[in-house]
Amino acid sequence: MSNEDFLENEDNLFVQKRVPHDDLHELVKYGDHPIYQGLKDDQSKAWIKKSLFEKLDYQTKLNCVKEEAMVIALERYLIPMISENQETSYNLALIRICTTLTKGWFRQFAIDNYPQLINLDKDLLSIARNVIEKFPIKRKKPVLLTHDPETRVIFDSIRPYTEILSFFDKLEYDPDDFDITGIKITSPVNGNISVTAIITTLCKYNFSCNPSASWSASVIILPSKEMEIFLRNYKSSKYELISDLTTKYIFSLRIKANTSGTSWGVGEDIWKPIYVEAKSADDVASILEIPGLTGDLLFKYVLDFLNPTLARNGETPLKHWVNELKSEGAIPIKPEQHLWYHAWNYELKSLFM
């Protein structure tokens, strides 16, 4: 599925857009039109034809590469305000073209002519500032989660007995975008009883010639003693520890995407089917001996307290799926719940239908 089918004002993957990629080409063009436009049979595709490129004079070939490098410099460094040095940004973009962002004959031309390409001859910083001023990024309104009075009473009774776990910061694991958070909930009824909730999120991405990305998330809720024994007896690597922990999930989510172009935002961002697994939390909730606390409420509480999300717009297809289910009446529109709760609850109910 293409995100263009349902994504209008959302940010593109990995590139926070103020203006479309092709519009940036208009701002750095050397002639009346961006050079790449004359090198395509199909303007909707990202690829340019080698036979048409070969017909250009040498300087126009250089300018074609430079236009692309300037757009990348604007898009990835200057407009997002990651860098304010236009020469450095341009050189980084040019290096990307010569390594992972393009391939084949176009990349080879850039490599062979690198000394002739490194001199920046346009004021990219002024262009970036104009774009930032004219096209401010709209701030997304935070979703305010509401709970009924009975739920709020239970949540308020648990909150003073909830401890944020910090030992996860010491895990020797640093992949692309990895996060692990946790809380320990002690029973207000019996101080010797507690449960531990862990949430892991991971985004792995590839910025090669055919970019792709995958996201995964899990929510694990176990009796604290069981968790402590598991951690104490574990002998393998930290990565394997996290992998094994996620097999004990209450909720598991996996999402994948790739792009048809040579860069995110150039071609179509293609989303793969979402994979969701859900298990009941009733058994672990009953351990706390809190009147009225069900597995449903415990899962809601963990999400409400830790408020997890997937990095780099990874939840885009999940939002689309949940909105479709709402439009079909399969998920209630009100009250607003955490996105993961909707997915978990729907899948859990589907198991018993």
Results as ranks from 00 to 15, higher is better:
Gly261Thr: 04
Ile287Tyr: 13
Thr294Gln: 01
Asp176Gly: 08
Leu117Glu: 05
Ile270Gly: 04
Glu172Met: 09
Ile198Pro: 04
Pro291Ser: 11
Arg159Val: 11
Val302Thr: 07
Val71Glu: 05
Val189Pro: 00
Lys66Arg: 15
Ala281Gln: 02
Cys203Lys: 07
Ser2Val: 03
Lys248Gln: 15
Asp11Tyr: 13
Trp215Ser: 12
Ala128His: 11
Ile111Tyr: 04
Leu318Arg: 09
Leu56Lys: 10
Ala128Met: 12
His147Trp: 03
Lys40Ala: 07
Lys66Asp: 06
Ala311Glu: 10
Phe135Val: 04
Leu144Ser: 03
Lys300Val: 00
Trp105Met: 08
Lys134Leu: 13
Asp269Cys: 14
Glu54Pro: 01
Leu339Glu: 07
Asn12Trp: 13
Phe305Glu: 13
Gln16Phe: 14
Thr102Pro: 00
Phe135Gly: 00
Glu289Leu: 04
Phe53Gly: 10
Glu324Asp: 11
Glu268Ile: 06
Ile270Val: 15
Met353His: 10
Arg107Trp: 03
Pro211Met: 12
Ser252Thr: 00
Ile242Asn: 04
Ser214Tyr: 12
Trp47Asn: 07
Val322Tyr: 07
Arg232Thr: 15
Arg152Cys: 12
Lys256Cys: 14
Val195Gly: 08
Asp283Gly: 05
Ile250Trp: 00
Asp11Arg: 12
Lys138Asn: 14
Arg232Ala: 15
Asn210Phe: 13
Phe305Ile: 13
Tyr36His: 14
Asp244Lys: 05
Met353Ile: 08
Leu171His: 03
Ala343Gly: 03
Ser260Pro: 02
Glu240Thr: 03
Pro136Ser: 02
Phe167Thr: 10
Ala330Asn: 14
Lys272Arg: 13
Ile154Pro: 07
Lys122His: 07
Arg18Leu: 02
Thr200Met: 07
Ala197Thr: 06
Glu315Arg: 01
Lys134Asp: 13
Lys66His: 08
Val322Pro: 02
Val219Asn: 02
Tyr346Asp: 07
Gly265Glu: 08
Arg107Lys: 15
Ile158Arg: 08
Lys141Tyr: 03
Ile229Phe: 11
Glu75Asn: 15
Lys300His: 00
Gly292Glu: 00
Ser237Lys: 08
Leu124Cys: 09
Gln116Gly: 02
Met70Tyr: 03
Arg152Thr: 12
Ile185His: 09
Asn119Val: 12
Glu336Asn: 12
Tyr90Leu: 05
Ile72Ala: 13
Thr151Gln: 04
Asn206Glu: 13
Asp32Thr: 09
Glu228Phe: 05
Ile48Gly: 01
Ser286Phe: 08
Phe352Ala: 01
Ser89Trp: 05
Leu310Ser: 05
Leu293Gly: 08
Tyr173Asp: 02
Ser208His: 14
Ala343Glu: 04
Ile242Thr: 12
Ile180Leu: 09
Arg107Thr: 09
Leu144Met: 03
Cys203Asn: 12
Ile193Phe: 07
Glu84Arg: 00
Leu348Cys: 04
Glu315Asp: 11
Leu165Phe: 05
Cys64Arg: 12
Thr60Gln: 14
Leu120Arg: 09
Asn12Met: 10
Leu39Gly: 08
Tyr234Asp: 05
Thr316Met: 10
Leu101Gln: 12
Tyr114Thr: 01
Arg129His: 14
Ala285Arg: 07
Asn3Tyr: 13
Val195Asn: 10
Gly104Asp: 09
Arg76Leu: 14
Gln337Trp: 06
Leu145Asn: 00
